[in-house]
Design a protein around this nucleic acid. Structure first.
Length: 292
DNA sequence: CTAGGATCCTGTCAGC
DNA sequence: TGCTGACAGGATCCTA
Protein backbone atom coordinates (compact mmCIF):
# COMPACT_ATOMS: atom_id res chain seq x y z
CA UNK A 1 0.00 0.00 0.00
CA UNK A 2 2.75 2.39 0.61
CA UNK A 3 3.33 4.55 -2.42
CA UNK A 4 6.21 6.90 -3.04
CA UNK A 5 5.21 9.53 -0.44
CA UNK A 6 4.88 6.93 2.29
CA UNK A 7 8.24 5.41 1.46
CA UNK A 8 9.84 8.85 1.40
CA UNK A 9 8.27 9.54 4.78
CA UNK A 10 9.78 6.35 6.11
CA UNK A 11 13.15 7.26 4.65
CA UNK A 12 13.18 10.64 6.31
CA UNK A 13 12.09 9.19 9.61
CA UNK A 14 14.61 6.38 9.64
CA UNK A 15 17.24 8.87 8.62
CA UNK A 16 16.89 10.59 11.95
CA UNK A 17 16.73 7.39 13.98
CA UNK A 18 18.87 4.63 12.58
CA UNK A 19 21.69 6.31 10.67
CA UNK A 20 25.06 5.40 12.20
CA UNK A 21 23.53 2.66 14.26
CA UNK A 22 24.94 -0.82 13.95
CA UNK A 23 22.75 -3.76 13.03
CA UNK A 24 23.76 -6.26 15.68
CA UNK A 25 21.42 -9.11 14.83
CA UNK A 26 18.79 -10.04 12.29
CA UNK A 27 15.94 -12.33 13.22
CA UNK A 28 14.14 -13.82 10.24
CA UNK A 29 10.73 -14.99 11.41
CA UNK A 30 9.43 -15.69 7.93
CA UNK A 31 11.82 -17.13 5.34
CA UNK A 32 9.83 -15.77 2.43
CA UNK A 33 10.27 -12.22 3.69
CA UNK A 34 14.05 -12.26 3.66
CA UNK A 35 16.16 -13.01 0.61
CA UNK A 36 19.90 -13.53 0.70
CA UNK A 37 22.22 -13.98 3.64
CA UNK A 38 21.58 -11.70 6.62
CA UNK A 39 24.46 -9.24 6.82
CA UNK A 40 25.31 -7.12 9.85
CA UNK A 41 27.03 -3.76 9.75
CA UNK A 42 26.79 -0.07 10.51
CA UNK A 43 24.15 1.95 8.66
CA UNK A 44 25.71 4.74 6.63
CA UNK A 45 22.95 5.89 4.33
CA UNK A 46 19.29 5.42 3.49
CA UNK A 47 18.15 5.90 -0.08
CA UNK A 48 14.91 5.57 -1.98
CA UNK A 49 14.35 4.38 -5.53
CA UNK A 50 10.68 4.74 -6.33
CA UNK A 51 8.89 2.71 -3.71
CA UNK A 52 12.00 0.76 -2.74
CA UNK A 53 14.19 1.63 0.21
CA UNK A 54 17.92 0.98 0.32
CA UNK A 55 19.86 0.86 3.57
CA UNK A 56 23.60 1.05 2.91
CA UNK A 57 26.04 -0.51 5.35
CA UNK A 58 29.68 0.33 6.00
CA UNK A 59 30.85 -2.96 4.49
CA UNK A 60 29.91 -2.52 0.82
CA UNK A 61 26.59 -4.27 1.32
CA UNK A 62 23.07 -2.95 1.33
CA UNK A 63 19.62 -4.00 2.40
CA UNK A 64 16.82 -3.46 -0.05
CA UNK A 65 13.30 -3.21 1.35
CA UNK A 66 10.09 -3.21 -0.61
CA UNK A 67 6.85 -2.99 1.37
CA UNK A 68 4.53 -3.90 -1.50
CA UNK A 69 0.90 -3.93 -0.34
CA UNK A 70 0.98 -4.42 3.40
CA UNK A 71 4.53 -3.86 4.60
CA UNK A 72 5.35 -1.67 7.55
CA UNK A 73 8.54 -0.52 9.17
CA UNK A 74 8.29 0.28 12.83
CA UNK A 75 11.25 1.61 14.74
CA UNK A 76 11.17 1.23 18.46
CA UNK A 77 13.88 3.24 20.10
CA UNK A 78 15.42 2.50 23.41
CA UNK A 79 14.00 5.35 25.39
CA UNK A 80 16.09 8.47 25.79
CA UNK A 81 19.03 7.04 23.91
CA UNK A 82 18.30 8.55 20.56
CA UNK A 83 21.25 10.81 20.03
CA UNK A 84 20.54 12.01 23.54
CA UNK A 85 17.51 13.88 22.29
CA UNK A 86 14.74 13.15 24.71
CA UNK A 87 12.18 14.97 22.66
CA UNK A 88 12.30 12.44 19.85
CA UNK A 89 9.45 9.97 19.77
CA UNK A 90 10.10 6.52 21.11
CA UNK A 91 8.40 4.84 18.21
CA UNK A 92 8.35 5.77 14.57
CA UNK A 93 6.25 3.83 12.13
CA UNK A 94 5.13 4.01 8.55
CA UNK A 95 3.64 1.86 5.86
CA UNK A 96 0.39 -0.04 5.76
CA UNK A 97 -1.91 1.59 8.33
CA UNK A 98 -2.94 -0.57 11.24
CA UNK A 99 -2.79 -0.81 14.98
CA UNK A 100 0.54 -2.54 14.65
CA UNK A 101 2.00 0.92 14.92
CA UNK A 102 1.09 1.00 18.57
CA UNK A 103 0.85 -2.72 19.32
CA UNK A 104 3.27 -4.64 21.36
CA UNK A 105 5.92 -6.03 19.03
CA UNK A 106 6.80 -8.44 17.65
CA UNK A 107 3.33 -9.64 16.75
CA UNK A 108 1.75 -12.15 14.39
CA UNK A 109 2.65 -10.09 11.36
CA UNK A 110 6.27 -9.46 12.23
CA UNK A 111 8.44 -11.08 9.56
CA UNK A 112 11.93 -9.72 10.21
CA UNK A 113 13.51 -8.01 13.21
CA UNK A 114 16.62 -5.87 12.80
CA UNK A 115 18.28 -5.43 16.18
CA UNK A 116 20.16 -2.18 16.43
CA UNK A 117 22.46 -0.76 19.06
CA UNK A 118 19.84 1.58 20.47
CA UNK A 119 16.60 0.14 19.28
CA UNK A 120 14.77 -2.29 17.07
CA UNK A 121 13.40 -2.07 13.56
CA UNK A 122 10.44 -4.35 12.92
CA UNK A 123 9.41 -5.36 9.42
CA UNK A 124 5.75 -6.33 9.52
CA UNK A 125 3.85 -7.57 6.51
CA UNK A 126 0.42 -9.11 6.63
CA UNK A 127 0.34 -10.53 3.11
CA UNK A 128 4.04 -11.39 2.74
CA UNK A 129 4.34 -9.71 -0.64
CA UNK A 130 7.05 -7.40 0.63
CA UNK A 131 10.63 -8.38 1.33
CA UNK A 132 14.00 -7.41 2.62
CA UNK A 133 17.03 -8.61 0.72
CA UNK A 134 20.75 -8.18 0.90
CA UNK A 135 22.96 -7.28 -2.02
CA UNK A 136 26.32 -5.65 -2.64
CA UNK A 137 25.97 -1.86 -2.68
CA UNK A 138 27.53 -1.81 -6.13
CA UNK A 139 24.69 -4.00 -7.43
CA UNK A 140 21.83 -1.82 -6.20
CA UNK A 141 21.37 0.07 -9.45
CA UNK A 142 21.62 -3.20 -11.38
CA UNK A 143 18.77 -4.75 -9.44
CA UNK A 144 16.10 -6.04 -11.82
CA UNK A 145 13.40 -3.90 -10.23
CA UNK A 146 15.43 -0.74 -9.70
CA UNK A 147 17.07 -0.62 -13.09
CA UNK A 148 13.71 -0.64 -14.86
CA UNK A 149 12.23 2.25 -12.86
CA UNK A 150 11.17 5.28 -14.83
CA UNK A 151 11.75 8.84 -13.61
CA UNK A 152 9.60 10.41 -10.97
CA UNK A 153 6.96 12.84 -12.27
CA UNK A 154 8.86 15.98 -11.24
CA UNK A 155 11.94 14.83 -13.18
CA UNK A 156 10.20 13.86 -16.38
CA UNK A 157 9.27 16.01 -19.32
CA UNK A 158 5.85 15.85 -20.90
CA UNK A 159 7.44 14.89 -24.21
CA UNK A 160 9.16 11.96 -22.58
CA UNK A 161 6.01 10.61 -20.99
CA UNK A 162 3.90 11.31 -24.05
CA UNK A 163 6.26 9.22 -26.16
CA UNK A 164 6.09 6.36 -23.67
CA UNK A 165 2.31 6.48 -23.56
CA UNK A 166 2.19 6.15 -27.33
CA UNK A 167 3.89 2.78 -26.92
CA UNK A 168 1.02 1.66 -24.71
CA UNK A 169 -1.70 3.52 -26.51
CA UNK A 170 -4.37 0.86 -26.07
CA UNK A 171 -3.95 0.55 -22.28
CA UNK A 172 -6.16 2.56 -19.97
CA UNK A 173 -4.26 5.59 -18.70
CA UNK A 174 -4.66 4.39 -15.13
CA UNK A 175 -2.85 1.12 -15.91
CA UNK A 176 -0.08 3.09 -17.60
CA UNK A 177 0.59 5.45 -14.70
CA UNK A 178 0.60 2.56 -12.24
CA UNK A 179 3.38 0.98 -14.30
CA UNK A 180 6.61 1.94 -12.55
CA UNK A 181 8.57 1.56 -15.77
CA UNK A 182 6.48 4.31 -17.40
CA UNK A 183 6.41 6.83 -14.59
CA UNK A 184 7.60 6.08 -11.10
CA UNK A 185 5.99 6.56 -7.70
CA UNK A 186 2.25 6.51 -8.20
CA UNK A 187 0.13 3.76 -6.67
CA UNK A 188 -3.60 3.28 -6.50
CA UNK A 189 -4.37 6.33 -4.34
CA UNK A 190 -2.29 8.88 -6.14
CA UNK A 191 -3.24 7.52 -9.56
CA UNK A 192 -6.91 8.14 -8.78
CA UNK A 193 -6.20 11.56 -7.28
CA UNK A 194 -4.04 12.58 -10.23
CA UNK A 195 -6.64 11.62 -12.83
CA UNK A 196 -9.40 13.36 -10.89
CA UNK A 197 -7.27 16.46 -10.66
CA UNK A 198 -6.91 16.72 -14.44
CA UNK A 199 -10.45 15.57 -15.20
CA UNK A 200 -9.53 12.51 -17.22
CA UNK A 201 -11.36 9.21 -16.98
CA UNK A 202 -9.07 6.34 -15.91
CA UNK A 203 -10.30 4.15 -18.78
CA UNK A 204 -9.18 6.68 -21.36
CA UNK A 205 -6.73 5.05 -23.72
CA UNK A 206 -3.20 6.25 -23.07
CA UNK A 207 -2.75 7.11 -26.72
CA UNK A 208 -5.61 9.62 -26.57
CA UNK A 209 -3.80 12.04 -24.26
CA UNK A 210 -2.41 15.15 -25.91
CA UNK A 211 0.94 16.59 -24.97
CA UNK A 212 -0.91 19.19 -22.95
CA UNK A 213 -2.89 16.48 -21.12
CA UNK A 214 0.35 14.71 -20.29
CA UNK A 215 1.87 17.93 -19.05
CA UNK A 216 -1.14 18.45 -16.79
CA UNK A 217 -0.86 14.88 -15.61
CA UNK A 218 2.77 15.26 -14.59
CA UNK A 219 2.07 18.46 -12.71
CA UNK A 220 -0.92 16.93 -10.94
CA UNK A 221 1.00 13.80 -9.99
CA UNK A 222 3.85 15.89 -8.61
CA UNK A 223 1.41 18.03 -6.73
CA UNK A 224 -0.55 15.24 -5.04
CA UNK A 225 2.59 13.37 -4.06
CA UNK A 226 4.42 16.44 -2.80
CA UNK A 227 1.40 17.47 -0.75
CA UNK A 228 1.33 14.02 0.76
CA UNK A 229 5.04 14.00 1.54
CA UNK A 230 4.61 17.35 3.23
CA UNK A 231 1.85 15.99 5.42
CA UNK A 232 3.77 12.87 6.37
CA UNK A 233 2.23 10.50 3.87
CA UNK A 234 -1.20 9.05 3.98
CA UNK A 235 -0.38 6.30 6.41
CA UNK A 236 2.44 7.42 8.57
CA UNK A 237 1.93 7.54 12.26
CA UNK A 238 4.42 8.68 14.78
CA UNK A 239 3.65 7.34 18.16
CA UNK A 240 4.82 9.30 21.10
CA UNK A 241 3.70 8.64 24.63
CA UNK A 242 0.82 11.03 24.52
CA UNK A 243 1.32 13.44 21.70
CA UNK A 244 1.25 11.55 18.42
CA UNK A 245 1.13 13.10 15.00
CA UNK A 246 0.13 11.06 12.04
CA UNK A 247 0.14 11.22 8.28
CA UNK A 248 -3.16 12.69 7.25
CA UNK A 249 -3.06 13.01 3.50
CA UNK A 250 -6.25 11.04 2.99
CA UNK A 251 -8.42 13.06 5.33
CA UNK A 252 -6.90 16.39 4.35
CA UNK A 253 -6.39 16.10 0.63
CA UNK A 254 -7.98 13.04 -0.96
CA UNK A 255 -10.72 14.14 -3.32
CA UNK A 256 -11.96 10.79 -4.60
CA UNK A 257 -10.02 7.91 -3.06
CA UNK A 258 -12.21 5.85 -0.73
CA UNK A 259 -14.92 8.48 -1.11
CA UNK A 260 -17.50 6.54 -3.12
CA UNK A 261 -21.01 7.82 -2.46
CA UNK A 262 -19.75 11.16 -1.24
CA UNK A 263 -20.05 14.39 -3.22
CA UNK A 264 -17.38 15.41 -5.69
CA UNK A 265 -15.53 18.42 -4.24
CA UNK A 266 -15.76 20.20 -7.60
CA UNK A 267 -19.35 19.60 -8.71
CA UNK A 268 -21.21 17.71 -6.00
CA UNK A 269 -21.94 14.64 -8.12
CA UNK A 270 -21.60 11.40 -6.19
CA UNK A 271 -18.21 9.75 -6.45
CA UNK A 272 -18.46 6.23 -7.82
CA UNK A 273 -16.18 3.24 -7.65
CA UNK A 274 -15.33 1.04 -10.59
CA UNK A 275 -12.69 -1.45 -11.60
CA UNK A 276 -9.92 -0.42 -13.95
CA UNK A 277 -6.79 -2.39 -14.66
CA UNK A 278 -7.89 -4.83 -11.98
CA UNK A 279 -7.86 -2.19 -9.28
CA UNK A 280 -10.58 -0.42 -7.35
CA UNK A 281 -10.90 3.00 -8.94
CA UNK A 282 -12.68 6.11 -7.74
CA UNK A 283 -13.96 8.83 -10.04
CA UNK A 284 -16.37 11.67 -10.41
CA UNK A 285 -18.49 10.53 -13.36
CA UNK A 286 -19.26 14.12 -14.24
CA UNK A 287 -15.81 15.70 -14.03
CA UNK A 288 -13.86 12.81 -15.55
CA UNK A 289 -14.64 12.12 -19.18
CA UNK A 290 -13.17 9.54 -21.47
CA UNK A 291 -11.14 11.14 -24.23
CA UNK A 292 -11.76 9.73 -27.65
C1' DC B 1 6.49 -6.43 -28.42
C1' DT B 2 1.72 -5.18 -25.81
C1' DA B 3 -2.54 -6.15 -23.05
C1' DG B 4 -5.01 -8.46 -19.71
C1' DG B 5 -5.70 -11.76 -16.29
C1' DA B 6 -3.98 -14.82 -12.63
C1' DT B 7 -1.06 -15.08 -8.85
C1' DC B 8 1.62 -14.54 -4.44
C1' DC B 9 -0.63 -14.29 1.05
C1' DT B 10 -3.47 -13.06 5.13
C1' DG B 11 -7.24 -10.65 7.07
C1' DT B 12 -11.61 -8.25 7.06
C1' DC B 13 -16.06 -7.23 5.75
C1' DA B 14 -20.63 -7.67 3.39
C1' DG B 15 -24.14 -10.79 2.43
C1' DC B 16 -26.53 -14.80 3.07
C1' DT C 1 -23.23 -17.42 14.62
C1' DG C 2 -20.90 -19.37 10.69
C1' DC C 3 -19.80 -19.72 6.05
C1' DT C 4 -18.51 -17.69 1.44
C1' DG C 5 -16.73 -14.73 -1.80
C1' DA C 6 -14.86 -10.28 -2.85
C1' DC C 7 -11.44 -7.31 -2.12
C1' DA C 8 -7.09 -5.06 -0.57
C1' DG C 9 -2.54 2.01 -1.35
C1' DG C 10 2.08 -3.85 -5.51
C1' DA C 11 4.52 -6.13 -8.85
C1' DT C 12 5.49 -10.23 -11.60
C1' DC C 13 4.47 -14.06 -14.41
C1' DC C 14 1.90 -16.29 -17.95
C1' DT C 15 -0.89 -16.42 -21.95
C1' DA C 16 -2.83 -14.82 -26.28
Amino acid sequence: MPELPEVETIRRGLNQFIIKQKITKIDVLCEKSFQGIPILGRITNIRRFGKALIIDLDNQNSLMIHLRMTGQLIYDGAEDQLHGAKSLPKRYAAGHPSDNFIDRLPNRQTRVILRLENGTLFFNDQRKFGFIKTLPTSEVTNDSFIKKLAKEPWSMTAEELHTKLQKHKESPIKAAILDQTIVCGLGNIYADETLFSIGIHPETKSGALSLKDVNNLLHAASDVMQKSINSGGSTMKTYVKADGTKGDYLEKFAQVFHREGKPCPKCGTKIIKLRVAGRGTHICPHCQRKLA
